[in-house]
C-alpha cells in the first residue's frame, strides 16, 4: 500500500499551558492534533501523579500531531514560543501515513 512521509510531534506540557499551546499551533496553521492526559511521571522537576489533583497547576498533558515535513519548522517555532520557559518535552519522530491529503 502507498504510504507518505510525515512528522509526528509529541509535546508534553503542563496542562495549564495546553490552551496556549494549541492556540499557537492553530495560529501556525496546524489544525489537526490530539490532546492526551498524562497520568503521572518523573523528571527534572521531581515526580508527580494525577491522583487527587484538584488544581491544574501540577498536571501534564500531551499534544500529539502529525504534519507534513515542510510544515514542521512553523509548528516548532510556534510551540517553542509557548513551551520555552515551562516544564515539558518536545519530541519529533519520522512516521508514515496512508492518506497524505489529511495532513
Amino acid at each position: 500500500m502507498q504510504t507518505h512521509k510525515a512528522k509526528r510531534v509529541e509535546i508534553t506540557i503542563e496542562t495549564i499551558m495546553e490552551n496556549r499551546l494549541t492556540k499557537a499551533m492553530r495560529d501556525a496553521g496546524v489544525t489537526g492534533y490530539s490532546v492526551l492526559p498524562v497520568r503521572g511521571g518523573s523528571g527534572r522537576s521531581g515526580t508527580w501523579t494525577r491522583a487527587g489533583q484538584i488544581s491544574r497547576a501540577e498536571g501534564m498533558s500531551q499534544v500529539v500531531c502529525i504534519i507534513r515535513p515542510e510544515r514542521l519548522d512553523a509548528l516548532l517555532e510556534a510551540a517553542f514560543a509557548v513551551v520555552e520557559t515551562h516544564i515539558g518535552v518536545v519530541c519529533i519522530t519520522d512516521c508514515e501515513v496512508l492518506r497524505a491529503e489529511r495532513f
Binding site: E14, I16, M17, R20, I54, S55, R56, A57, E58, H86
Partner: peptide, 9 residues
C-alpha cells in the same frame, strides 16, 4: 488551587 495555576503561567 487558583494561585499555583496562575503562577505556573
Amino acid at each position: 488551587i487558583a494561585v499555583p495555576a496562575a503562577m505556573r503561567v
